[in-house]
């Protein structure tokens, strides 16, 4: 706590952030049902295929999330019955996916699509680096759990709920009370809890940056 509040001061947040509202504050944590997609190595081409990257704004990507896994032959009248996002028994703002989630292309459109669809948390046993940053920069929390804990979640019934507590860095299966710890650096944690954004911070240290440029010649 102490280091986090110290950090909070050092970030010198200015108030013009364009970031989403903070969504993980509060003592109780964030409680939701979850949508399981038990597939490993889900790449960003699956999350949002390239043909949808022609937009020049960030809005509206949610309807094309997992487009080619959701529909037969790109036809919205033919949803694939076996894909969890099409199955009415699954709901919630937590996506649970197999390991190495978000590999491949750096397209932030993948994070925009997840956020726009309504996911606030993605749980996996492993995240690709670029996706992890993109998610954090859009208020989507990547929760990396052990493979064992991930499999426990996959084995739960569709009615169960999970609690994600960013402050304590824990994720809990509410029916059993089983819990796993997840890593996030203090800086990013502070940003997410307070709705801060990296650009605000970087702009606030511009003098340091200019000094650095002068010194290196």
């Amino acid at each position: 706590m102490n280091s986090t509040s110290k950090l909070s001061n050092s970030i010198k947040h200015s108030q013009n952030s364009g970031n989403p509202e903070p969504s993980f504050g509060g003592q109780g944590g964030f409680v939701s049902r979850f949508v399981p997609v038990n597939i490993e190595n889900i790449d960003t081409d699956q999350i949002i295929p390239a043909r949808f990257l022609k937009a020049t704004t960030k809005e509206g990507f949610g309807k094309n999330l997992f487009r080619d896994w959701k529909y037969e032959n790109d036809d919205e009248s033919k949803p694939k019955a076996d894909f969890p996002l099409n199955q009415s028994q699954y709901a919630g703002e937590i996506l649970v996916a197999g390991k190495n989630f978000g590999c491949g292309s750096s397209r932030e459109h993948a994070a925009w699509a997840l956020a726009d669809y309504g996911f606030k948390v993605v749980v996996s046993s492993f995240f690709a680096d670029i996706f992890r940053n993109n998610a954090l920069n859009n208020g989507v929390l990547p929760v990396q759990v052990s493979e064992n804990f991930l499999q426990k979640i996959f084995s739960l019934s569709n009615e169960e709920t999970l609690t994600v507590n960013l402050e304590k860095q824990t994720i809990t299966i509410n029916s059993t009370g089983e819990s796993d710890f997840f890593e996030i650096n203090s800086y990013k944690k502070t940003c997410l809890l307070n709705g801060y954004d990296d650009i605000d911070y970087l702009l606030s240290i511009k003098e340091d940056i200019e000094k650095f440029e002068t010194q290196r010649g």
Binding site: K58, S106, R107, E108, A111, I130, N133, N134, N137, N138, D198, I199, L202, L203, I205, K206, I209, E213
Partner: peptide
């Protein structure tokens, strides 16, 4: 490689 938020950061502050 970086995402678009990071593209904005680099544009804004290098």
């Amino acid at each position: 490689g970086i995402g678009t938020s990071e593209v904005e950061m680099v544009m804004a502050t290098q």
